[in-house]
């Protein structure tokens, strides 16, 4: 890996001081690429934290234009940008923070049609998408291409995150073998809730890419900000999972 430049050392000095990370960790982040699937309430914060941390390349996938109801949580969108492209707004805001960052903006949501190509662009994927078919397509491609998937979700004042490591941990289809009939795309949430999960998801991505700490592999972190209860739940692989083909019953990696 090429050494850090003086500018990179100056910008990332405070995190280079983190034990177990150092200049090597920073070089790994700079050489890494991440797909953030939707840059909404969760994905805006994931992308912003990764841009701040010095990730080398981001692929942002999100269709549509900014709506008023985006602005309570989608922190890369602005009031002035109402009616304009979400990914263009996200790209502009991220480049203001980190002009060294390379960004591929895709004005599409992830789908069966583009999942193989989008996942193929990167080293790691962060799932910030609201619809299960979209998340299942992402999960299938991550398993097939052996790419780590950080899976983030929220509802009301609750959040959850887990890190799927292909071949090691349960996958999203192990957790949810069928499309949940009760889920709806629009649901109650605060930006302060999506922000917490976005930060946790970004930290998981940083850890997996740099080798720092222990990711939530086979573990679902759940929390409820109404009473600040945080739990670590151990997940099970699904016997004969149709996606990851798990055959054991032990979720711990």
């Amino acid at each position: 890996m090429p050494p850090l430049t003086d500018e990179e050392r100056a910008v990332y000095e405070w995190q280079i001081w983190v034990p177990g990370f150092g200049e090597t960790g920073q070089q790994k982040l700079r050489d890494a690429s991440v797909l953030v699937s939707r840059v909404g309430g969760l994905g805006s914060v994931v992308a912003y934290e990764l841009a701040a941390a010095g990730i080398g390349r981001l692929v942002l996938a999100h269709a549509g234009n900014i709506k008023p109801s985006d602005l309570n949580r989608q922190l890369l969108m602005t009031h002035a940008g109402l009616g304009t492209s979400r990914v263009e707004s996200a790209q502009r805001r991220l480049k203001e923070l980190n002009p060294r960052l390379e960004i591929l903006s895709v004005a599409e949501n992830l789908s069966e049609a583009n999942a193989e190509r989008l996942v193929g662009e990167v080293d790691l994927v962060v799932d910030c998408a609201p619809l299960f078919p979209e998340r299942f397509a992402m999960n299938r491609q991550c398993i097939e291409q052996k790419k780590p998937l950080v899976d983030c979700a929220m509802y009301d004042l609750e959040g959850q995150v887990t890190t799927i490591l292909p071949g090691e941990t349960p996958c999203l289809a192990c957790l949810y073998p069928e499309d949940p009939p009760s889920w709806r795309r629009e649901f109650p949430v605060f930006g302060a809730v999506s922000g917490t999960i976005g930060c946790l998801g970004a930290m998981e991505a940083i850890k997996v890419l740099s080798g720092l700490g222990e990711p939530l592999a086979g573990t679902l972190l759940t929390y409820d900000l109404r009473d600040m209860t945080f739990r670590r739940r151990r997940l099970l692989k699904l016997d004969n999972c149709s996606v990851c083909g798990s055959t054991t019953d032990s979720g711990e990696s």
Binding site: R38, A129, F132
Partner: peptide, 10 residues
């Protein structure tokens, strides 16, 4: 025992 319905991003 905890019963948890699936949630997503957005």
């Amino acid at each position: 025992v905890t019963l948890l319905s699936p949630v997503s991003g957005g």
